[in-house]
């Protein structure tokens, strides 16, 4: 087998699935060594995936198309899982709580599995259509996906919060292994702040690009509108902290609802609604 980008990327799919299982095992049985192994496997997967993405970029030059691998649904799914793992690894490194991995790595593995196995997702390298030929492509996609990746992590943390909140201070069992509600609440907030900045930058770069390509920075196209809806939801989450009784559970719900809106902006708009942003369609 030659070392092509698709080889590395399919390998990544299995590594991330393995990492997700390891993190779950670590959470349930709490064996430190399994946790360490999960981190090592995830990091290895991340490096292999980075190589795969870089190779795909090089391959597109060899085909004579020469563009960053961010132009269709397959490439964006790969990039989404890459950036989710990146944001997660940063959070794990800073917070030193591996159990979060059990709630985040599944997102990255689902994205890779969907990209690799779904017959709907075409994985060949295609040339860029005229509308996408712009330096804004990389800036726009990277900013948006940094937001999406952070929101995936925030959603995982939100689910953890709801589990933990239900346990009502129970210190034993698998729920006892989760960080305290106070820590989770703070982490959700920080991840949402980080994601919100990138989502805002993603919307802004999209607006500047649209103005350059179509002559209008905002045209209420479904993709644009849904990104704004997502922005409203996270703006709500940021302001809700200042209202008494809105912290904790409600913000955890908002982090999950917000990520549902991210997923709809990402997939739902392509599959169910029509508009200018049809590049990501299968």
């Amino acid at each position: 087998m030659t070392f092509s980008s698709s080889y590395f990327l399919s390998l990544t799919t299995f590594i991330y699935l393995g990492a997700a299982i390891l993190y779950l095992t670590y959470w349930i049985f709490r064996v430190e060594k399994v946790g360490l192994l999960a981190t090592l496997v995830t990091t290895a997967g991340f490096i292999i995936q980075t190589l795969g993405i870089a190779l795909r970029w090089i391959e597109s030059y060899k085909l004579g198309y020469g563009h960053a691998p961010l132009s269709n649904l397959y490439e964006s799914l790969v990039f989404f899982s890459w950036i989710t793992i990146l944001v997660y690894l940063i959070v794990e490194w800073r917070v030193k709580r591996r159990v979060i991995g059990a709630f985040v790595t599944p997102f990255a593995s689902f994205a890779m599995a969907y990209a690799s196995f779904s017959p709907q997702v075409e994985d060949s390298i295609e040339p860029l259509i005229p509308a996408l030929k712009s330096n804004w492509l990389i800036v726009h996609v990277v900013t948006c996906f940094l937001g999406y990746g952070s929101f995936a992590v925030a959603c995982g943390l939100g689910v953890m919060f709801l589990f933990k909140d239900k346990a009502k201070g129970e210190s034993k069992g698998i729920l006892g292994a989760l960080p305290s509600c106070k820590v989770l609440d703070e982490l959700i907030h920080q991840t949402i702040v980080f994601g919100f900045l990138w989502l805002s930058l993603g919307i802004i770069t999209g607006a500047v690009w649209a103005n350059n390509a179509w002559g209008t920075y905002w045209s209420w196209d479904p993709k644009e509108t849904w990104s704004l809806i997502t922005w409203f939801i996270y703006a709500t989450a940021l302001h809700a902290r200042f209202i008494r009784g809105w912290t904790g559970r409600r913000i955890a719900y908002l982090s999950i609802l917000g990520f549902a809106s991210v997923l709809f902006t990402y997939f739902g708009v392509n599959f169910l609604l029509s508009g200018l942003h049809s590049y990501g369609s299968p």
Partner: peptide, 24 residues
């Protein structure tokens, strides 16, 4: 009030869906 801000953000989020479902 910040309650009005949150109410408006939620209302805008919900009502903005309409124009993406009904062709404009």
């Amino acid at each position: 009030s910040i309650r009005l801000a949150v109410f408006l953000l939620i209302t805008l989020a919900i009502t903005s869906i309409i124009g993406t479902v009904i062709p404009q």
